[in-house]
Design a protein around this nucleic acid. Structure first.
Lengths: 277, 277
DNA sequence: ACTACTTCGTGTACGGCATAAACACGGAAG
DNA sequence: CTTCCGTGTTTATGCCGTACACGAAGTAGT
């Protein structure tokens, strides 16, 4: 359906359909697919199984959804809507950023398949954009330059996704094999026999490096936030620089927020130029 | 072949076979598979195509390799062998760690499919262990505690993999569609029309946040290293703590390296206890 | 030299996947 | 009443990993 002139933007941003009592709907398909993926992971998500779950034939889905890929995009935006309402406390940027990272982490614990979605050209739906805006807001008030704000948020996002990915993989393998990760690695005797020749490895082993491992998400989040904090401090010190449009030195803004242009005129000129290109 | 009592450790750690003039070999299969995956990505790697490339039937591969999954593990260790010889310069930990991260990054640029491999139970082969040991060594000399060393290295590894993953995905989509990432996103007019209502997004947009984006790998690597550095400084200040075995306060070690146990007796006791469990 | 056994490669077949294309049916519009 | 369109179905194509039965060829034992 909807031979899309613009790749399915319309499908993602469609307003809510009034769902008929019976029959298929995009919304119903998406929800069934989310349930299925929650239970079986993304690779267990097949058009057949979604259709079965709804009591229709496989091909019927294609009347409402262009294909599997698009279905996954719809699923993503669907679950993005589960994010809690952004509450506008005036906490510091680090508190807010940490909170936002934990929310993303929570969401991926509820829907582990989110981390398994591949591809860089996913159009954001309304829920996705709202959440992205919310994340950016946590850093936009700092002295970071705009591209740094964006890169930092992307870094946090990739970090959470990477952690979620290893989590879902360990869980899947534990379920499939019935053997816990610790047990499995503990039973690899024939591997450990060969590790004596590696000095650092044995040194860390003898000093209990693997006895009480760090929580990987907590450790990594703290490190990444520390790293961003270091950059923020650095930028705080060299806060006042030059206008991005005309190059004259910038005065400190009375609001304390970072400035980019020296005057409204410059800002508008830059904006027009960008629009033209 | 090789119905493995211990899941293929033997296959990974096999000594080099003398390869007969003609006929199949595990090594030949692995190398052909690496070539194929380099060219077509991991999802383009099929047993049929590997066999075709070698001029044999599909099923012949199964005489030398248990299945696709094991083949991928073999491929991983194969390319791990391409890491440059670790040179023992006495640089600082940060320099060494950065170098090691860049090496891993380089390797993933040569073999993008490495980042696409999923699963947490990959047995390391000899090359993999050597590289892991080398990475750990970069941090083992600092005041970080052993579990922190391990977690930090894991963090770096996941960071590199995550970056490599988005890189390979953009490249694949660019090749498949013939449209560059920038062009594609630039052409999503019908999306941008809807973004006015999001304040931070438009603020950053107007201030040129997307005009000259940060290099994602460089930015992230710097942040993560900064984050680890912050932890190292923190540990430097509280370096001398208590013996992990008996709990008595630790004296500073003459070598300046971090200590874990107060005496050789405690260290040996701890080692014996761990072995027993 | 003859036999039994192992090793290696082949051919066929099964069940799973996404999806293209043609078709069937029911209700609304002309 | 006819036409058309939205919706669901049927059938078929071409991928995939791999189980299984078989054949050919080499090797060891007698």
């Amino acid at each position: 359906m909807t031979r899309d002139p613009d790749d399915g933007v319309e499908l993602l941003w469609r307003e809510k359909e009034h769902e008929p009592r019976r029959g298929l709907t995009t919304g119903r398909i998406v929800r069934a697919a989310v349930e299925l993926a929650d239970a079986e992971g993304l690779e267990g998500l097949s058009m057949r199984k979604v259709a079965d779950r709804l009591g229709f034939t496989t091909m019927s889905l294609y009347r409402h959804v262009p294909g599997r890929e698009q279905l996954i995009e719809l699923m993503l935006d669907e679950v993005m809507g589960e994010h809690p309402r952004p509450q506008e406390g005036e906490a510091g940027w680090r508190t807010r950023l940490e909170a936002v990272a934990r929310q993303a982490w929570e969401l991926r614990r509820r829907h582990p398949w989110m981390a398994e979605v591949r591809g860089t050209r996913h159009l954001p739906g309304p829920n996705g954009v709202a959440h992205y805006d919310h994340m950016l807001a946590a850093l936009a008030g700092t002295s970071l330059r705009p591209p740094e704000v964006i890169a930092a948020i992307a870094l946090i996002g990739r970090f959470v996704d990477a952690e979620a990915l290893v989590l879902v993989e360990t869980q899947r393998e534990e379920r499939r094999s019935g053997v816990s990760e610790q047990e499995w690695w503990g039973a690899r005797e024939s591997l450990y026999e060969r590790l004596d020749r590696y000095p650092t490895l044995t040194h860390l082993w003898e000093n209990g490096g693997w006895d009480h491992p760090e929580d990987s998400f907590e450790f990594g989040l703290a490190r990444v936030l520390d790293g961003i904090e270091a950059l923020v401090h650095q930028r705080d010190e060299t806060r006042y620089e030059i206008c991005q449009e005309c190059g004259t030195p910038l005065e400190p803004a009375p609001s304390g927020r970072p400035r980019v242009y020296c005057s409204r005129a410059c800002r508008q000129r830059a904006y027009r130029n960008r629009k033209g290109s």
